[in-house]
Structures are given as C-alpha cells and as structure tokens.
Amino acid sequence: MFKHETVSFDDEPLILVDSEDRVIGHETKLKAHQGDGLLHRAFSIFLFSGDDQVLLQQRSGDKPLWPLFWSNSCCSHPRRGEELEQAIHRRLREELAIDAELHFLYKFQYQAEFGGRGAEHELCSVYVGKLETPVAVEVNPSEVADWRWLSCAETDRLIAEEPDQITPWFVMEWQRLRNEYRERIAGLSATPLRKVA
C-alpha cells in the first residue's frame, strides 16, 4: 500500500528542448515552470479498458499548478539522462502502482499559464495502453487525489460541462484522440495489468 511517498521534486532536472525536440540543456522542474515556462520534454498517458472506458485522475491538492484538476491517467516528465520509454513506466509505478504495455501516438507542443503561478511549456509525447478490465488502482496521495473510470461519452461531457476543472493539456489531447486516433485505439490488444509493489 502506498504511503504518502514524495516522487516529484522541485530540483529534479528536466530536459530542455527546441521545437524539433533537440536537447538544448537542462533545468530544475521549479525553474522550468516559472513565468511563461521553458520548453521541456513531457509525456501523457491514457489507459483504456476496452474501447469505451478511460482512467482519469484528479491531481493532488499539493500540486503547484492545476491542483485538484481532473486530467488523463498519468503525466510527467523524463529526467536528465532518462529515455521516454523508461520515464513512462517509472511514472505509472510511482503514481498508480501499476505497469502496462504502452503505445506512442504523437507529440505536440503547447503552452498554458496557470493564474500567474507558473506555466506548462511542453513538447509532450502521448501514449495509450489498453487493459482487459477497468480495474481498481492504488494511488500515491502525494500525486493523485482521486481517480475514476469514465466512458468516452462521459469524458466528453465532463470536458464540455466542467472545463474549469480540467487540465488544458488533457482537453487538447482528448480532442485529438477522439478525432484522429479512435480506430488505432480500438485496434489495440488488451494486455494484463501488472501491479507493482
């Protein structure tokens, strides 16, 4: 069972990139998110069950940016010296105590400010995975306040009806998944959930 384990740190070194995803340096997470933000690598993960259920998480109230906002299944950043493939699985384990087979879909650049408190400025790689059933997950309370499985239609309604409770990157990514990647997601084979200690 998760303790209130801290897995995110202000001084963790993020990977700064240009718009072509070329590494141009490194900066602490704190400084990378100040002001308008410095462009850095990031990733978002969507876990589906079948074609019609998606796992959402509510961000911890301790988050400096978008606390208690609903977002996709898992998201974070690779650290200096870490490949994306390593980072995506590390973060699933740290936030949800699970691992799963993940598939890269696309990457995109965005910038979003949060009420003068800082900003995300990311070149974000989007991954999806499909589980056999909508299982219960065990969340790390330092990262995740709550979670729920919703149907895709319910997720559409949540975004339409409560946009001020949803992270901006989740909205952008979900619209693209729904508009461009439905068939790709439907064609994924479900893989057994791997729970980790």
Rank of each mutant, 00 (worst) to 15 (best):
E94D: 06
R117A: 09
S71E: 14
A160E: 15
M172Q: 14
D62L: 04
L131N: 04
A119W: 12
R148Q: 15
Q109K: 08
G115L: 15
P67H: 05
V137Y: 13
E83L: 00
D164T: 15
H121I: 01
E94G: 06
G118N: 13
R80H: 09
R90T: 10
F69H: 00
Q57S: 11
R93I: 12
H103Y: 14
E122Y: 08
V126T: 11
T167E: 07
S125A: 09
Q57N: 05
H77N: 04
L84F: 10
D62H: 10
F114W: 15
S125I: 10
P134R: 04
Q86I: 07
C75P: 02
L131A: 03
S73I: 05
E113I: 01
Q86W: 12
S151I: 07
G118F: 13
F104M: 09
L65N: 05
E94V: 13
E173G: 04
Q109R: 13
L123P: 03
I88S: 09
L102I: 04
L96G: 01
L55D: 13
L92M: 10
V144I: 09
R79P: 13
R117L: 15
L96P: 01
R117Q: 14
K63H: 11
S60G: 09
S151V: 07
I88K: 13
E173S: 07
S142D: 09
W174S: 14
D99G: 01
A145R: 06
E95F: 02
S142A: 13
R93F: 11
W147E: 08
E143D: 05
T133Q: 00
V171A: 08
L123N: 02
P78L: 03
P134D: 05
R91H: 02
W174Q: 14
A145D: 10
W149I: 03
E162L: 07
Q57C: 05
C124N: 11
V171M: 12
R93E: 14
E101Q: 03
K63F: 10
R93D: 12
Q165N: 04
R79D: 12
E85M: 05
I159C: 05
P163S: 14
